[in-house]
Simulated scan of single mutants.
Amino acid sequence: MVGDWWQDINDSTQWQDGVFYTLCAAYALVSAVALIQLIRIELRVPEYGWTTQKVFHLMNFIVNGVRAVVFGFHKQVFIMHPKALVLLLLDLPGLLFFSTFTLLVLFWAEIYHQFQARSLPSDKLRVFYISVNAAMYFIQVCIWVYLWIDDNSVVELIGKIFIAVVSILAALSFLVYGGRLFFMLKRFPIESKGRRKKLHEVGSVTAICFTCFLIRCFVVLLSAFDADASLDVLDHPVLNFIYYMLVEILPSALVLYILRKLPPKRISAQYHPIC
């Protein structure tokens, strides 16, 4: 009975449309919030150019906006041929999500190493960030191109495993640098409201991002080996709803809320755009 009920939901076009249009609306809302916040920051500190904070909000706007469009046209997206095109439209925003949120890791790493005796220059950290992202996109594009030419189930499996590996690396990076920055702030001798707020921000964002990337890793691996858990099909609407809510929509919304504070109009030397 339970299996029949679940199958009826999966096969129902009303459920499919309802779920994917709901996801579309949720992503559009988060995208709009990110854009509004970006505009507010730009109006507050236009003289500082593209800070990490501005880039973070811009990329959130793009990632969530792309997801909204994809799910808004879900009927057309999921029946596209070759299948590599479907995978591209579904996986590319996930990779952009990785790039967006690992910007926070880069920013935290820069702060952390500034206070260490053997600090790494921020330029080297940025080169490393760009190199990791470039390698990730290059490998993924190669997988898409191969699948476009030859729809091979083994290569598709490799692609899913690759996404899982990227996700677990992102989770670990948040754990390492979020944890390091958290304990570094905790060791500061000066107790203040600002310090407590920073601890709360870093701790909360670390927990949220670590959890969402860990869930992504687990679910993607599960879908790679279990067709009933596949996310790149139209007839798993509830699974898609739960997955995207947990790994992208809620984390994005929560992090944008936590980091909602605008920079001061007169920026001091201690001003940090994100934390």
Rank of each mutant, 00 (worst) to 15 (best):
Phe182Lys: 03
Ile190Pro: 01
Ser192Val: 11
His200Met: 10
Leu181Asn: 10
Arg187His: 09
Met184Ser: 10
His200Tyr: 08
Glu191His: 05
Phe210His: 12
Ile215Val: 14
Glu191Asn: 02
Leu214Gly: 10
Leu199Tyr: 00
Pro189Met: 07
Ser204Glu: 08
Phe182Cys: 02
Lys198Tyr: 04
Lys193Asp: 15
His200Asp: 06
Ser204Leu: 08
Cys217Glu: 11
Phe183Ser: 05
Glu191Trp: 01
Lys193Tyr: 09
Arg216Ala: 14
Ile215Tyr: 06
Gly194Met: 10
Pro189Gly: 04
Phe213Glu: 04
Arg216His: 14
Cys212Asn: 06
Lys186Gln: 08
Leu181Lys: 09
Leu199Pro: 00
Glu201Val: 12
Met184Glu: 13
Ser204His: 01
Lys198Ala: 07
Leu214Val: 03
Arg216Lys: 13
Ile190Asn: 00
Ser192Ala: 07
Ile208Cys: 03
Phe188Glu: 15
Ser204Lys: 06
Leu181Gly: 02
Lys197Asn: 12
Pro189Val: 06
Val205Gly: 05
Thr211Gly: 01
Val220Pro: 01
Thr206Ala: 12
Phe188Leu: 07
Val205Asp: 14
Thr206Lys: 12
Phe210Gln: 11
Phe210Asp: 08
Pro189Tyr: 04
Phe213Lys: 08
Ile208Asn: 08
Phe182Gln: 07
Glu191Lys: 08
Leu199Gln: 01
His200Gly: 00
His200Glu: 08
Lys186Leu: 04
Val205Glu: 10
Phe182Leu: 06
Cys217Ala: 11
Lys193Ile: 13
Leu181Asp: 01
Arg195Leu: 11
His200Ile: 04
Arg187Lys: 11
Ile215Met: 11
Ile190Met: 00
Cys217His: 05
Ala207Trp: 04
Gly203Thr: 06
Glu191Thr: 03
Gly194Glu: 15
Ser204Asn: 02
Lys198Arg: 12
Leu199Arg: 00
Lys186Glu: 09
Leu214Pro: 00
Ile190Leu: 02
Phe183Asn: 13
Phe182Asn: 01
Val220Phe: 14
Arg196Lys: 10
Phe213Asp: 05
Val219Leu: 09
Pro189Phe: 04
Leu181Arg: 13
Ala207Asn: 03
Leu185Pro: 00
